[in-house]
Design a protein around this nucleic acid. Sequence first.
DNA 1: ACGTGTGAACACATTCACAGCT
DNA 2: AGCTGTGAATGTGTTCACACGT
Lengths: 231, 231
Amino acid sequence: MISRPPRPRERGIPEATVARLPVYLRALQALQDKDILTVSSEALATAAGVNSAKLRKDLSHLGSYGTRGVGYEVEYLVYQISRELGLTQDWTVAIVGLGNLGRALANYGGFGSRGFRIAALLDTDPSVVGGSVAALEVRHIDNLEEVVRSEGVSIGVIATPAASAQGVAGRFVEAGVTSILNFAPVVLSVPEGVDVRKVDLSIELQILAFHAQRRADGDGRGTEQAGLGLK
Amino acid sequence: MISRPPRPRERGIPEATVARLPVYLRALQALQDKDILTVSSEALATAAGVNSAKLRKDLSHLGSYGTRGVGYEVEYLVYQISRELGLTQDWTVAIVGLGNLGRALANYGGFGSRGFRIAALLDTDPSVVGGSVAALEVRHIDNLEEVVRSEGVSIGVIATPAASAQGVAGRFVEAGVTSILNFAPVVLSVPEGVDVRKVDLSIELQILAFHAQRRADGDGRGTEQAGLGLK
DNA sequence: ACGTGTGAACACATTCACAGCT
DNA sequence: AGCTGTGAATGTGTTCACACGT
């Protein structure tokens, strides 16, 4: 008899919702900058590029933070979302690989804007190590374990060539880092309990190409898509 | 010679499948480089980081390209996926904004590797315009419309500051570009029929932070091996 | 014997539409 | 009267498990 380990219904926020919370947060902060104190689901949804039913459902997972007949208090919602996302505490980041992309990341202002602090830059290339990027010294990757410990790094960013990425991931994991953001075009293999997110530029382009092609062969010229688009 | 596939193709591949095809394609190309001719769904799934049932279902949307009892012929599958994604034709790309990120994109080799050609780099900054990045001259953004027309640009990449992104998007759309890859942290508003994909570094970090926080304070529920009781 | 291809079951996500509070 | 919060309905995606072709 095979009983499947039941996924315990841990009362959690749906993944799709989590992915949108940062978007809502950004929209709310833009409203704050304009000194707007209150916002309806309809208005906030428009600013965030979603529909209002989805927004309300998403927010309902955090709690009842709106007022019926009125809307949401901007400042309060900013705080609640920030807290839910874990942005009320600081997260320390290390970036490995300081090619063009790594440099871009290190210099990216919005990065450190709230909650994220870049604590270390690491590379292997002797022509890069010892130099300085974004007012930080680039250290040799041999210091990874020590830096993770001394700086309390909790998020590792991998911006190396594909061939080095798995090795770096392994060292991060070994050093106790359980959150990894991977820009290298490889599938990383990590133990259970380690969270890897991937950002892949060429995959995004390929998805765009797919849709563009579909649009192109569906309509020869402004015709709507009819069935039987035989080749 | 290439015989025409006898299988009629359905229109409408699920979006989730489309997003994974590039991953399969990359895994298959890695197998090709190792001179592997045939692969099972199990092996390919492992290389792509998914389970085999999902892989088979995904591939079944393209047609019946496997052989029962054997597996998939690597080269044939590479061709079929490439064709489905529209990579058998060339796509011309223009990048706007040559700050750190734009430069990284322009220099990113994998970009142009297959099917994508960077035809133009555009910026407003006088200290950048006229200079050269990745062996291409950076032109002033006033040339956008002309470049789109003369080079046949079909994909626009926006790597500008947030404040400029909507304006650039509008000009792309006006010039006839219907596929946009946006790296600026704003929600772009575009007409129906224009496809926008967003890559947002700080959103990815925030999602990681959410899960990291959950792991840290959820404790009891999870039975995964904790790496270092670092709290 | 083996691994693909797929209907059926299940899980997750979105949208609808309206009850309920202010 | 107006807008949130939410069950119910619908749509999309994933996993199971096995029939079927090689």
